[in-house]
Design a protein around this nucleic acid. Structure first.
Lengths: 289, 289
DNA sequence: GTTCCGCATGAATCGATAG
DNA sequence: ACTATCGATTCATGCGGAA
């Protein structure tokens, strides 16, 4: 294990990446700064230069990733001047030219997305979680992200009124109520490639780009305890906290000093969890009129 | 209105399209045959030729579509040999070169997709609904697809304890306590770009393209009664039935004789609905442990 | 100590206005 | 014509003060 492990790097992650040996990282997950026209934005990168800006990072990630490792990229293209931009799909094509395999596209279906109304589109409630790998054979621990449910929720909740449903949900969702025991003896099933979870709290100063449930889910899916997880754009430290809680090592980089400090604080109070409870892919159902 | 309206065409839709005048169709929605390597499949087109095969159709659709019309393309790339294929995103880029505007990517999140798994991926629970337009100004009737306020039940009732809820309910007698009355005037909200609806059970072994709720939703969003809706790969007639029920005119083409007859039968029994019932974008949620 | 309600706040986008 | 800035719009969520 590299001695740099479990540290935050303040600066451009390209430097951190170049300092790492080949095939040394088990898993990479990140949510890079999204393309933006406003120059003043945090690490804002203009849309027409996005692929060109980002591919040096993906080239280094490809080098440092272990042969059986995975890279999950959380990203979503902006709508600008009435059109959805194309830099993300162009990035996929370019990364394949670099040698990446585009294994899958998971969808993060956002429970609470940004409000607003426009004449030509609705609120954007989803983001891409692109799964790339260095080889077609990669490590994937599907049993570790199984979800309780399916038939139980379907058949049971179908007969509940809305209030009953809400009440039941609150019991389960709010944590660790006694209802959890009801779930434990139910069958667990494999999830789908759609993850349904809320964005994270907005009141705490800086908000994380993705909710901690997102890196948690993928870390469980693609690594084992003791593995090394890298996030080259770690922001407020969400990925590192998820890794710590799951007993994995982390490595992160952050260019912005303010975010670096936030991440540092978040990491300093993070503890491995005895048992982690993660929001995972969805299953229960709403029928409207 | 063209005299061909409200008819099915048996044959390659490129012929039907070429017979139509410029700017004569209000809305096009289709789910074309997916790329497939197996020759025996219904209209199977091999993946490496998919863009080349499909763009002549999109060129004609661009021509016959009215200037303020829309085109919704329901499609999902297959995973083949361990990788997600790229022909769909290449198609987007090519259609933009043809002159299309890529307005938005809606996600059809499949409701009753039973969990399953392969060694390297989970069950695919979503498909793309790509929204293209001929101009940046197009007709869109957002109020016609508003949904019951999604989460009022779980957002406010969530925090009520069982006893309090019982007390409130008994006090008012029916429905929810008056403390919820604030929310009663917010009955409907605008949906998001994620449509959460069930797949339809395909009988007789025919691959059902999309559930009728899908074209129904988009037809309501992009057309008015009396408008003309075109589906160049109409399959078992779902788009036509949706159009009829909504009081729109239809025009469809189908190459396969068996499907043509299925569509013909379905259309013959379809009636305009007094009030249509549509499954719309999702709202209630289940959280797991 | 609980429960309830007001309020601020988001990885947003568009159109209008100003330079 | 093209860029930069600002206001309007909208809704799920969590926090904190009040009951």
């Amino acid at each position: 294990m590299n001695e740099q492990v479990d540290t935050l790097f303040l600066g451009d992650s390209i430097e951190l990446l170049r300092s790492l040996p080949d095939n040394s990282v088990d898993f990479v997950i990140t949510s890079p700064p999204y393309a933006d026209n406003r120059k003043s934005t945090y690490q804002g990168v203009s849309m027409d230069q996005y692929v060109q800006w980002f591919t040096p990072y993906t080239a280094e990630i490809l080098r440092v990733l272990k042969t059986d490792g995975s890279f999950v990229l959380n990203i979503k293209e902006r709508a600008e001047n009435g059109e959805r931009q194309t830099y993300v799909i162009e990035l996929i094509l370019e990364m394949k030219r670099q040698g990446w395999y585009w294994i899958e596209e998971y969808i993060w279906h956002k429970k609470n997305c940004y409000p607003g109304k426009w004449p030509n589109r609705f609120r954007d409630a989803w983001e891409r979680c692109l799964h790339f790998a260095k080889a077609k054979k990669f490590r994937m621990f599907q049993d570790d992200v199984m979800v309780p449910v399916g038939n139980w929720a379907d058949s049971r909740l179908r007969h509940l009124s809305d209030t009953d449903q809400a009440r039941d949900e609150s019991r389960v969702g709010s944590g660790f109520g006694k209802n959890v025991s009801n779930w434990l003896d139910r069958d667990f099933v494999y999830p789908t490639n759609v993850l349904y979870m809320a964005t994270e709290s907005s009141n705490r100063g800086h908000s994380a780009s993705f909710p901690i449930g997102l890196p948690t889910w993928f870390i469980k899916l693609f690594t084992r305890p003791g593995d090394l997880v890298l996030d080259p754009f770690i922001g407020s430290g969400t990925t590192a906290v998820a890794a710590i809680r799951l007993g994995r090592h982390y490595l992160g980089a952050e260019l912005n000093h303010e975010y670096y400090q936030l991440a540092d604080e978040a990491i300093s109070v993070a503890q491995p969890a005895i048992e982690d409870l993660t929001i995972t892919s969805r299953s229960v159902v709403q029928r409207f009129v």
